[in-house]
Amino acid sequence: MPDWKIAIIKVVFIWCWTLIVAVIMTWVERRGAAMIQDRLGPNRAGPFGLLQPLADGIKLFTKEDIVPARAQKYLFTLGPVMFALPAFSAYAVMPFGDKITLGGKEIILQISDVSIGILYVVALGSIAVYGMIIGGWSSNNKFSILGGLRSTAQLISYEVPWGLAILAAVMLYGTFSMREVSLAQQGTFLGFLPNWGIFKQPLGFILFIVAAYCEANRVPFDLPEAESEIVAGYHTAYGSMRLGLYLFGEYINLYTLSAIIVTLYFGSWHLPYVDMSTFLGPISYGIATFLVFFLKVAFFLWLFVWVRWTVPRFRYDQVMGLGWKTLIPIGLFNLFITALFIQLSI
């Protein structure tokens, strides 16, 4: 099979997979929140409410599409698109597992292994900021513009600590490519710890996860859409599938960020201390690495939900203060320490 056919199959598969995961995430969010809060959550649409996301999707598609009278029509449509599209595009460089051998051909479970992998994802994250600010501005609504401004300031500020954490990790592994970072996490470190990023970069991990919550607009950083203060922030005026794109894009962002966390810090598809390729055949090895990767990502997705329903949210100036005054110095310190250790060849 020529390479381009394989690539198309991978694209289609990963496209469907991300949509399914985003859809399941809505269910997990609602059921998880309910179980934390001693109540039941959706349980009418299908057993355990498993068809609820389907019902939500149908609702979003069939609702009336309202554009406010004085909104800027084209920008109003462009906002959600600019938000969701980079979210989807980030999957092009995300690894999903190691490799699978089908019909004698080795196929890596990643759409394309570009040499600037992580940089590509960071760049796309910056474009998503435009989606929020354009959506907030074009709605012609004071609450929306407040939400848009807050989100812009927050996201742009937190790209610096995000970048610093990634920079330290990149310095450690010597490459931007996601696949090579994953491959480098094999084996053990100091004799007994798995060779995962978190043991080598604990401070970077904390930095990254805080910045990830901020980039994903999740509590405790969800002030752009703080429900009790500014109604719904930048997506107040949106309904129907435009809102669907915003909400979906948010969940897809979550998956992206979780995948990067797992790739950089949690050993990607490696099981600790066990090398699966020694005892599994080529096809089952591919499937096994896919499952291991997905389970790790699922834990981090659950962590997003779990923290959302436990913690209050920050105020705008506290977010800025935390980002600029606390996290950037920590990031620089982390960078310095990493460079020191690399120089001393530890």
């Binding site: 929140a33 934390i36 969800d222 703080a226 009790s228 329903w309 436990t310 209050p312 949210r313």
Partner: peptide, 8 residues
């Protein structure tokens, strides 16, 4: 709590 974001 709700107004501050902590719903639980």
């Amino acid at each position: 709590g709700v107004d501050l974001g902590a719903f639980t």
